[in-house]
């Protein structure tokens, strides 16, 4: 008699297109397109730099120092008389590389430590939690200055490493609390009572469900890391020439920007657009993945 109350055949499914629906939002498309373009620039800087005929950032003519934009040199010349456009384009590569590399490194550390702390509990949790607290309590700039001054060579990789050293604790905390919540849920209990191994429970049950909020925060972190890199470089403790980066260009512009605002303007625009796109994308992903908005 209760059969009638039951649907016995599966209704046509409509829930498959969640990613399509997310991708259709303008707040996702626009930053995604901007980031795609920047990524292309980072991968093929020579092609983009050569668009106006003067594609080599290291061909400089001191007599043209801080001259304004002109045909063939759309962004003008910097203090050394190099083409600003070519420098900004080549700078994209190191800025994005630092952002992505730092985030990936800290995400790796955070996932490993956060998962151990979240699933094991007990003393492992206490040790890892105190460790993150210590790193969170460290003044970032001071720490970065000390560490960066003591490394012999400041390259994209070493700067990323230092930035990751100070940015993993935030993610680790997030992973830990997210993992803890999932570990207590009934489907994880069910998996454990089935006798599945710890590794399988973590990789199949806990992490796939716990990582969504972490990925969102990590996306936003890429933006803040790029800003940090520029800040450090501007202060003279980040990347060094002959590396090319937006931070270095901003640093060299600081003494002359009243005479030649274009030195400050163009690298800043690229920096701002990159960071804004990443943060907007992270925010709209957060909104789109929020289960309360997709009931």
């Amino acid at each position: 008699m209760t059969e009638a109350l039951f649907d016995t055949t599966a209704p046509a499914r409509s829930g498959r297109g969640m990613w399509v629906r997310i991708l259709r939002r303008p707040s996702v498309i626009v930053p995604l397109a901007a980031l795609g373009l920047l990524l292309l620039i980072a991968l093929l800087p020579a092609f983009f730099a050569g668009l106006f005929g003067n594609g080599d950032p290291r061909v400089c003519d001191l007599s043209r120092s801080i001259d304004g934009p002109e045909p063939g040199h759309p962004f003008g010349f910097d203090v050394q008389g190099c083409d600003v456009y070519a420098n900004v384009i080549y700078g994209t590569q190191s800025s994005i590389a630092v952002g992505v590399l730092t985030t990936v490194l800290s995400l790796l550390v955070a996932v490993v430590l956060g998962t151990i702390a979240g699933t094991r509990g007990g003393w492992a949790d206490s040790v890892i939690s105190r460790l993150t607290d210590i790193f969170l309590g460290f003044p970032f700039l001071l720490g970065a200055i000390v560490v960066l001054n003591s490394v012999s060579e400041r390259t994209v990789f070493s700067v990323s490493l230092v930035l990751a050293l100070f940015s993993w604790p935030l993610l680790a905390r997030l992973v830990r609390s997210s993992v803890r919540g999932i570990t207590g849920s009934e489907y994880v209990l069910a998996a454990r009572t089935m006798g599945l191994s710890w590794w399988r429970v973590v990789t199949r049950y806990i992490l796939p469900n716990a990582l969504a909020p972490v990925i969102v925060v990590a996306t936003i972190m890429i933006g803040s890391v790029i800003v940090s890199e520029s800040t450090l470089t501007y202060l003279g403790i980040g990347l060094e020439s002959p590396a090319i980066s937006w931070g270095l260009q901003l640093a060299s512009a600081q003494s002359k920007f009243q005479l030649a605002p274009h030195l400050l303007l163009f690298p800043s625009i690229f920096l701002a657009v990159t960071v804004l796109s990443v943060i907007v994308l992270g925010d709209s992903l957060r909104a789109a993945l929020d289960p309360r908005r997709n009931t």
């Binding site: 849920s185 009934e186 489907y187 209990l189 069910a190 998996a191 009572t193 089935m194 006798g195 199949r204 049950y205 796939p208 469900n209």
Partner: peptide
Amino acid sequence: RRTMHRTVGVVFQNPAASLNPRY
């Protein structure tokens, strides 16, 4: 313990939380 897990099945209370959402 492994044999024991095999001989015991469990059904939990909350139907919304007892299945892995990614499966």
